[in-house]
Design a protein around this nucleic acid. Structure first.
Lengths: 221, 221
DNA sequence: AATATAACATACCGCCGGTCGGTTGTCAAC
DNA sequence: GTTGACAACCGACCGGCGGTATGTTATATT
């Protein structure tokens, strides 16, 4: 194989541009031609490296998964941080890791991005659950948590937070309602984990960030 | 306006055919031409009654929502049935109500149907939560349940069961693993609701049906 | 220097969602 | 009962999409 490095770099470049455009306009709304224009390359070049448009989005999501999981594992593995805080920080690392990841998260729940949303949700569910379940097991050993099924508990927490706190569901809520919902969610988490009431209070900061991002998004449009 | 009844009937007919085809092949894979062929009508006729393909899927899902919610409300409102069993039956009514609804549910989690999946999930979350939360409130009054936030609890249960027990996640599991997962889920539900351990044991039949449907689906392909 | 082949370019294809002008059938007015 | 208006319906057509076929160019191998 000749010029293997060129191939790698090109694939990376295509993936980067596609990731940005998908994040900006959504998957369906982004055409191959859009990528071509932005890339300064030909359509043939793209389809030389990828067999289909869906394969491109697969690469984009795979790359995002790797980043998110790596960030989450880094946080989750830092044993110097207490379990409570570590769980919160790991969850935060999963939801917003980098700059353009944030933008993608903003647009993710729009109906146009259903496919990306589904793929990322599944990826989070499958890959992030073990990372967080491990922390829960630690918590159980330390007597902080008590549950016979950490995976299911974490799965519930991840899927619910992903559905209930997306842009469309939080849009119509007042700050008070959102805050109440967040507190209820945390209370529910504590019961799920078998933790003491109030022990996960630090998690509220997760939703402060969310509310801030939501209002900023509103300002832009 | 002339022939208003004709319009209604035609719209119904288009919606029915579209629902069947979407269920069989998925939304993206079904072309307007497919609907035309199956319908024995012209493309122009369809776009006379609907402005876009997405408006058709909206009608299909709206109709499905009405059926599901009506069925769920009928079950939920039958006060002669004890709360435990009523909760279980209502949940069942939401997941498989009618014949072609079952087929739709089977294909719903395939990547091609992301949009329909997302719309139905949101519809379930928004419209079914109040129906089930009402039963939970009854249970609280009767001293069977104990939670300060029935909506959040039900929301968690609905979203998790929708994600965790879909075709793709249950496909790779053995019957034992699936059973273990189902029992863990029920245990988790009991804790969420503040119910006694074992009180929701009847819910296990929900997953028997699911496992049966999954294996039947496997036989067909 | 010749060859093979990866990397890229360009013209093109089939098909899709959606449009447009026209025809038909029905109801209301007179 | 003729006429006008308008909803219902038809089917040829369109722009643009994802994807392909057929190159051309550049580089590593021999």
């Amino acid at each position: 194989m000749t010029r293997k490095n060129d191939s790698r770099q090109t694939i990376d470049k295509i993936t980067e541009v596609a990731a940005r455009l998908f994040a900006e306009k959504g998957y369906e709304q982004t055409t191959i031609q859009d990528i071509v224009n932005d890339l300064g390359m030909s359509k043939g070049a793209i389809f030389h490296h990828f067999d289909s448009k869906e394969e491109i989005v697969e690469a984009v999501i795979g790359r995002r998964r790797d980043k998110l999981i790596a960030a989450a594992e880094a946080v989750a593995g830092d044993m110097s941080v207490p379990v409570y805080e570590r769980l919160v920080r790991t969850a935060m690392a999963l939801h917003v890791s980098d700059d353009d990841g944030l933008q993608m998260t903003e647009h993710l729940h729009k109906p146009q991005n259903a496919l990306m949303h589904m793929k990322i949700e599944r990826m989070l569910f499958d890959d992030a659950t073990p990372v967080m379940a491990k922390i829960v097991r630690e918590g159980i050993e330390q007597g902080l948590f008590d549950t016979p099924c950490p995976e299911e508990v974490i799965g519930m927490i991840l899927t619910y937070s992903n559905s209930a706190f997306d842009a469309e569901h939080t849009a119509g809520l007042t700050a008070d309602e959102l805050s109440r919902k967040a507190h209820n969610f945390i209370w529910t988490m504590e019961r799920l984990l078998g933790a003491e009431t109030g022990s996960l209070g630090g998690m509220i900061q997760l939703f402060d960030g969310l509310a801030g991002a939501a209002s900023e998004q509103g300002d832009n449009e």
